[in-house]
């Protein structure tokens, strides 16, 4: 195995020094980081929800309404966006407005649990009946809660209650073992397939470019092959580690935990904060990115 270490080091530095390797790793790490943090990113664009304003409204102004009684009008007019312009006295007047195309659709509210939607020409994507049904249900629900003396905000708080359940495993955790086994299996599969192919290509290219004749006259073929295979494998593991690390950070972001505390929930490792690479009380990109960049640079220096 003479020269194995030298061949391994040279091949590894050559592989990691390749622009294509660096760019591929960076792209995959970014994809992993962004992909796993998508749920949190989506919440950044969500407007804060007002628990009191849970009643949906139908925004269509080209929809007309007929109410069977003034009580029904009072109960639903606001939620449905009813004005004097789109309020009709009876079904015949509504149908007439639909026929002369003043309206796109119409609704006849006969009770707080019954309604009818009218179209002249129904389009494929028309969902007015579904929206109307939701409004009737929501209004019915709010009325019921009001009768019971419960406010909508109180009900919302009950519905969104998130219990904190922690798990302490004193022995072996099969779930963790399964996860580890799955991750290892995927990594080994990737290494065997991808890096076996890469090693074969590298050797074929060396033979083609006549470098092999020089190498084979200076080192044993077994050392050459093993050195190249080992370098390809380690390069793959390093790439995998960078991508996995990116995914982990993305996952921390997605779960909305403070990285300082959130990391502590991943077994014995206390997260990026435990490594002293992020500032205190932070969970946003500004703190994650420097850590991530440091980690990548550190791995490349190996």
């Amino acid at each position: 195995m003479r020269n194995f270490k030298l061949i391994f080091q040279y091949e590894l530095s050559s592989l990691l020094g390749k622009k294509s390797t660096r760019i591929t790793t960076l792209i995959l790490a970014l994809v992993a980081l962004i992909g796993t943090s998508v749920p949190r990113i989506i919440t950044w664009f969500d407007k804060p929800e007002d628990p009191a304003a849970v009643v949906e409204t139908l925004p269509d102004s080209d929809m007309g309404y007929v109410f069977a009684s003034p009580e029904l009008h009072d109960a639903f007019a606001q939620a449905l966006g009813v004005t004097e312009d789109n309020l009709y006295p009876d079904r015949e007047a509504l149908e007439a407005a639909l026929n002369d195309r003043t309206l796109r659709a119409g609704a006849v509210i006969t009770s707080d649990s019954q309604a009818e939607v009218l179209y002249l020409d129904r389009e494929l994507e028309s969902t007015d009946e579904q929206a109307l049904s939701d409004i009737l249900r929501q209004t019915h629900r709010n009325k019921f809660l009001e009768e019971k003396g419960i406010t909508a905000a109180e009900m919302h708080a009950v519905e969104t209650f998130a219990p904190q359940v922690s798990v302490t495993v004193l022995g072996q955790d099969s779930e963790t073992n399964l996860m580890l086994a799955m991750i290892l299996m995927i990594m080994v599969y990737t290494i065997v397939l991808a890096y076996g192919a890469i090693t074969s290509t590298v050797i074929a290219r060396e033979k083609d470019s006549k470098t092999m004749e020089l190498l084979i006259s200076s080192a044993r073929p077994s050392s050459l092959i093993l050195g190249k295979v080992a370098a390809s494998g380690v390069s793959g593991v390093l790439q995998g580690a960078i991508i996995f690390l990116s995914a982990f950070i993305g996952d921390c972001i997605a779960r909305g935990r403070d990285v300082n505390d959130g990391g502590a929930e991943y077994g014995a490792w206390h997260g990026p904060a435990g490594m002293g690479l992020v500032w205190q009380n932070s969970q946003d990109w500004a703190t994650i990115c420097p850590f991530w960049i440091c980690a990548m640079c550190g791995l490349y220096r190996l």
């Binding site: 003479r2 470019s209 006549k210 006259s217 200076s218 044993r220």
Partner: peptide, 15 residues
């Protein structure tokens, strides 16, 4: 491999 040999092959190639 057990001697100090310098070799220039006819078909030359390096990285």
């Amino acid at each position: 491999t057990e001697n100090r040999v310098g070799y220039l092959p006819e078909e030359r190639g390096m990285y």
